[in-house]
Each structure stands twice: as C-alpha cells, then as structure tokens.
Design a protein around this nucleic acid. Structure first.
Lengths: 227, 227
DNA sequence: CGACCATTTGATATGGATCAAGCGATGTGG
DNA sequence: CCACATCGCTTGATCCATATCAAATGGTCG
C-alpha cells in the first residue's frame, strides 16, 4: 500500500493529474474520478494532519472519516464526519485547518489540489463547483455551531436525525463512530451521550438494538427536541 | 435613503452592475468598489434576513454588522461580527443562512451576486478570490466552533484577543457591540460575560475604562487562558 | 431631574462534568 | 473450549461552572 508520506512527497504516479482532460466543461465529480489516486487507510490511520500543506483533497469512496482538532489540554473537537461521496481536506489556505483520520477501514480518492485549481482556471464550471463545495462545507459548519449551543438532548437528537439522513436504511442507523467520537462532535462527554441515548430510549424515541445500531422509533419526538 | 426592499426589488440603479469592466484580470475588491451601491443602515436595522434570496452581498464601509440566527425558543446565536472591510452575505446557496443587522449606524456597499458571479465567469482571478473569501469565512466559523467548547474565561479571553486584532488602537478596544451581543456570540449569558470581565479585571488582565472600552493590560495572561 | 436601558452584582438552582464502578461483547492464550 | 484480559459502553454518586432569578447601580437622553 502506498504510504501517506509517499503521496505527499509525490513519489508515486498521480494518474492523469498532469493530463488535462480532453474536453472542457468537465464536471468536478468526473475530474475527481479521473485524477484521483485510490488509496486505503486502516482504522484510526491519519489521512492528513492539521498544519500540514493542504496539497491534496480526499473523496471518501468507502468507510468513514473524522476531521478534528486537539486543544492544548487534550480536549478534542470533531469538525465533521465524512461518508462515501463526501470530500474532505478541501481548503483555500495553504495548510489543513483540521486533522483527518479513518474511523473505519477506508478507501479514498486522493486528488492534487493544484491539479483541480488548474482545471478550474480553464473550466468555469469546475471553478464554480469548487466554490460551491466550500460553500456547502461552510453551511455545514454553521449548522454545527447551532448544535453546540443546544442542550444535550437537543444535540443528540439532532445528531441522530442528521445521521439518519446520511446513513440510514429506513429508520435504522448503523453508526460507524464510537460514543467518544459522537461526544467530541457534540461537545459533550461520553457519559452524557450514553445517558441521553438511554433517556431517548426510555422515552420510546429510539431503540438501541446494539450500541452501534440505533432505530428511530419516533422522529417527530426527536425533531421536537431539536428546538 | 434607499430602502432595503427597494434594493431587493431592483427598483433603483445598480451603478455599473450591467457594465462589464473594460479589462480582465480585475481585482475583486476593485470590482466591488465599482459595482457596489452605497447604502446606509440605522442602528439595529435589518440588512438581510435568514431565508431571503441571497441576491446581494454586503461590504462594510463603516460601522459594525452582526449576523445571527434565532432558534424556535428565542435563543439567539451570533454567527459573526463584520467590521469595515469585511464582506457578509456571501453565499453559494440560494438563500441567506443567517440574518444580518447593523449594530451601529452603518455604511455598506451592496453588490449584486449575479454580477460578481458573471464577472467570475470571465475572470479567473475574481473566481479564485470569491472562492478564497468563502474559504476564509469557513476558517473563521471553524475557529468559532472551537470557542464554543471552551470555558467562559477562555471564550471571553479569546473574544478580547480577537477584537484586539481587529479594532484595537494599541491595547485599547472600543467595542461596538453590547454585552448581549457578546454573550450570544460566545454562547454564554450576559451575566456570565459581565462576571468574567470583572474577574479578568480583578486579575489585572484587563481594565474596564467604560463598559464599551476595554484596555488589555496583560495579553499573555489572556493568551494563557485561551487554552 | 427623572425615566429608561445596559450593565453589574448577588443568591440560588441545575445540567452536564467528573469520578468511580459495573457490565457486556470481543478476542486471546492456556 | 473456557478463563480471563481488554475495550467500549452504561450506570451511579457527587461536584461545579454556568444559568437563572432578582436586585442594585450607572450611564444616557428627553
């Protein structure tokens, strides 16, 4: 397997990164598929680190990625969870603002940012999509802020509804992340997350089939909590 | 004075918005100066509302603007403060995600987004700057998230250091916003903000010359708090 | 001067953190 | 195949930072 270091130092072949696509008006998604180098990461492996040059972006193919920052005293804030189809590591600055790790075994497409920026310079549609992508991320982070001012119940309910939209088959959610990850995403402790889930179960809003599998029994009750 | 409604309905002349600049490779800032329609807002006047079409963006010329959301139960979260030179209301989606109000008497330049997007379609440099602007906003909001997981002292200290960078003449800060605005920005109550400021003053980290004027006496003490 | 609003200060309550076990699933070596 | 260690999660007891409720103070403007 290619190591992350190998990718960063450019010591492997970037398939087609140096070959501009033959036609203009090329979709970003298509470009990513063509220019992206497939890569795998083991559970908990670092994909990129905060402060490292943001030379690559990463499209998740399978598995789940978390981005995070660790404060001086060890507190960790998870910035977001990235599921298949999502792109993380896209920055306009020189350095990654967050670190990223594979939560589960992951396959990602690694794309050189400069290649995409160069393509954007030739193709306005790609430029627009790059902008839109950053805009969506902005919107997501703004929503995250609203989460962090709510009560524990509201945060957990909002989290469940969000995950239901993203990973659910019907009403069942298969969570790829641990309670600690959820806690660090919601700005709570692991104990509070656990207690709140139990509370929601007792209120028949959800059912904890197993610790990673949650069934939404009463979405409107959850939405109601979601003030 | 032009009303906000007049602007939105396009019932006034957009200076030069329909006249493409004569040369390409035009700076975004320059374009904004040329295409922007000057407009004034009184203290507490609404500049745009959450959910309204994001047809315009706003460059602050003088005064201070706050963006915010109000939750169903009345809690308000301030997304950011915009000082002269800052641009707010720039979205990639169709609608404004936040509302915006003038904190003080404000002069802004109002720019039609479609005009800027059209310009970006002709000028890669403008396109890149538009993207970068959204990227900076993303970075700012990400930093805001980190604020919200800290202790009251850390939040207030971080706020003071941030404002010092943005509005200070030396070590003195002239705050344009009320304690309530600060509280809603930091996710605290007004009482906690007030108490924390008093605490910092007693610790000789700051001096409260008046409620809106704060002198930083010991920046390293504040930074130390800023975990 | 007096009314009003913003801010500070005080007293008390409480939601979530912290500290500490207990429990259940998973995996490992004997 | 089972005893046992390990890890992730839950549950319990207590504490504390911040919210809430309430009152006093101060600054501003008519």
């Amino acid at each position: 397997m290619l190591t992350q270091t190998a990718i960063r130092s450019g010591s492997f072949k970037q398939p087609a990164a140096h070959l501009p696509p033959p036609v203009e008006n090329f979709e970003l998604a298509g470009a990513v598929e063509l220019m992206g180098a497939p890569m795998s990461f083991a559970r908990n492996a670092e994909i990129f680190g905060e402060g490292e040059p943001a030379d690559y972006l990463y499209k998740v193919v399978s598995g789940t990625v978390r981005t995070y920052k660790v404060l001086a005293d060890g507190r960790r804030q998870i910035g977001g969870f990235y599921l298949p189809g999502d792109i993380c590591g896209l920055e306009t600055g020189d350095e990654h603002a967050f670190s990223a790790e594979a939560i589960t075994e992951c396959k990602v497409l690694v794309i050189k940012r400069s290649a995409l920026v160069a393509l954007a310079g030739r193709d306005h549609d790609v430029a627009r999509q790059l902008w839109t992508l950053t805009g969506s991320e902005l919107r997501r982070v703004q929503d995250h802020i609203l989460l962090l001012i709510k009560s524990a119940q509201e945060r957990v309910a909002a989290f469940l509804l969000e995950m239901a939209e993203r990973v659910s088959a019907g009403n069942a959610i298969e969570l790829p992340m641990s309670r600690q990850d959820i806690a660090d995403y919601l700005g709570l402790t692991i104990e509070t997350v656990s207690r709140t889930l139990t509370l929601l179960e007792n209120a028949s809003a959800i059912e904890l089939s197993s610790s990673r599998r949650i069934v939404l029994r009463n979405r409107s009750a959850l939405s109601r909590l979601n003030a």
